[in-house]
Design a protein around this nucleic acid. Structure first.
Lengths: 342, 342
DNA sequence: TTGAAAGCGCTACCAA
DNA sequence: TTGGTAGCGCTTTCAA
């Protein structure tokens, strides 16, 4: 049988309370007593019983991490950032993959509620963040990452997506592109929308404007990128093709590049392409993809840190929430945007 | 305050034991009483307290899933298979990403032990499965997936890797390749070794034999694939280059293809390439990659199912373990192996 | 600085 | 078919 705190107490010749105090450093204990206790713990191989501890403290010391797709390097890096921060504090984590499906997200959240996690870092499937609201109702602390939730009571960690859109567009302008198109992401996702806003603003700053014939939409998948280019070529059969394309994420951008190849459109010769996220694939394809990257690991770590603060201040009876942290992004220049004019 | 089972009992005018019996269906309860109880539960919004339940039952109803890399589609699919099976039974899961580092694996396992999970499905970082042994010591039921553990007491779910190696090699032989090389995976990984064995056997069956000049090793990463081809060209400067290459996983195979491009070696014209795993990337690169795929989702689901059986039989005092399930694999023919001779 | 003891919320035994 | 109640292993008052 597993030894309990009583066994340790007996072996050390002290009371269970003293053992508890030694383990949790929750009150001063005489050096000599402490030694007796730690020795007893050692020799019995005692480990505290999670269930009893949690029942007594009404806290699981487990934190949830929700993302739409764990196999997307953007999110697996985000997860690593958050996990490292949690593990540092001896806290455990439950990772949930919603596959971008709101239904699955709800089920995952039900699981986290059942497990009575102490808090959640979430990139919701939908921007609106139905799931996040659910957690808010349950009074489980949440920090939103890479999504702007509706409530401004919710602490949020974001990349500067509008700035990213501006950077990508500005880069193509500098490279000499004159007709720059945009492939938008899913309508519900704030990230995608903000990138588009950046594109529009970059054009307007130079007194250009976004031509409807050069704009289409995808759903962040590879194949939707392929379809997007097809649709675009259809649209501007008369007005003439774009010479540059900003694509709302890398995976779609890769789709665009593949389709361009099929259509004998040279990238970057005929069409310069920029994506967002800097996934592994972007370095592997031919031509390599120019993209805008966010400090994903730090975003995850920061989100976890803010969540921990929030949990802590809840315990102190304070309630500080609704913070907003925005991280700057960075243009990663690769082959897909290298026109002759450099 | 959260309602407890006592509140429900009071509201329904019954004893707490009866409420428990209704919730857990652990003993017959009169229809009328049951209704009173469920009504009370409903109106109070009662939910059972995980901590108290777990303490009493000495069981967390949580299962661990350990993989070397969650962003590898092979493993994220495996995870999905296992998770679906667990969630079906109302069980929760903790996913652990070891990044292929034994040290991280140990830390993850410590976490699972601390959380007192009821069982673990594990693809260990090392084949030897140090971590898995640790779980075995702790008497936590384990099922190994995609790795042959040392102990044959441990239930194992595998793909037929040797068969895969044979299939890949046989395919190139049929396509007319005469000098077929192999890029091996990390030495500690049984999967990689078995694929190589299949290659050797396929050659021997046709009374050919593996030429040392055509064999090199990588570590499953993209860049190690690039280096592998370089090294190979170095090695057979005199003996002549291979006309076909079996590469122990897709990611390295993609590296090989990219490097071939740099060296002006045409794939598949000069060099046919086959990989293993059928990751997403294999469909996206140019040329698309011929590969051997395993029924990953089913492997995950099967592993979870076997684990659940094992846990169940432990509870009944039986001990059935050490089963071994091997799944057949399938060749996915794409462009990288289409020689003129079809 | 230490100990005694109550009680977190649940399940399951024993009795009725 | 139901109720009373002990106890899972821990933390935390209160008292010494």
């Amino acid at each position: 049988m597993e030894p309990t705190i009583l066994d340790v107490a007996e072996k050390a010749g002290v009371s269970p309370s003293t053992v508890s105090r030694v383990i949790n450093e929750t009150a001063p204990v005489a050096e000599a007593t402490k030694k007796k206790v730690t020795d007893a713990i050692e020799s019995l191989g005692y480990r505290t019983n999670k269930f009893a501890h949690a029942l007594r403290k009404q806290s699981s010391n487990v934190f949830g991490i929700i993302v739409p797709d764990i196999s997307n390097p953007f999110f697996s890096t985000l997860i690593r950032g958050a996990e490292d921060r949690f593990h540092e504090g001896g806290l455990s984590t439950m990772i949930c993959d919603t596959k971008g499906e709101p239904k699955k997200e709800i089920r995952n959240i039900e699981m986290l509620v059942k497990e009575r996690v102490d808090g959640v870092v979430a990139t919701s499937a939908e921007s609106a963040g139905n799931g996040i609201n659910r957690l808010f109702e349950e009074e489980i602390p949440v920090v939103a990452v890479d999504r702007s939730p509706t409530s401004n009571e919710i602490t949020t960690v974001l990349a500067d997506n509008e700035g990213s859109g501006k950077k990508a567009t500005g880069h193509l302008l500098e490279k000499g592109c004159r007709r720059i198109g945009f492939v938008r992401g899913p309508s519900g996702v704030s990230t995608a929308h903000e990138r588009f806003t950046g594109y529009v603003n970059a054009l307007e700053e130079r007194e250009l404007h976004a031509d409807d014939d050069l704009i289409t939409q995808g759903d962040f998948t590879f194949s939707s990128g392929k379809r997007a280019l097809e649709r675009l070529r259809e649209k501007n059969r008369n007005s003439g093709p774009p010479d540059g394309l900003v694509v709302a994420n890398d995976l779609m951008a890769v789709g665009v590049i593949r389709k361009a190849e099929e259509l004998n459109v040279k990238v970057p010769g005929d069409l310069a392409v920029v994506g967002f996220d800097d996934i592994l694939l972007s370095k592997l394809i031919n031509p390599t993809l120019t993209t805008v990257s966010a400090p994903t690991y730090r975003m995850g770590a920061t989100a976890a840190g803010l969540l921990l603060n929030e949990v802590e201040s809840n315990r102190m009876g304070r309630a500080d929430r609704g913070k907003r942290v925005v991280f700057a992004t960075e243009l990663v220049e690769r082959e897909s945007s290298q026109l002759g004019g450099g």
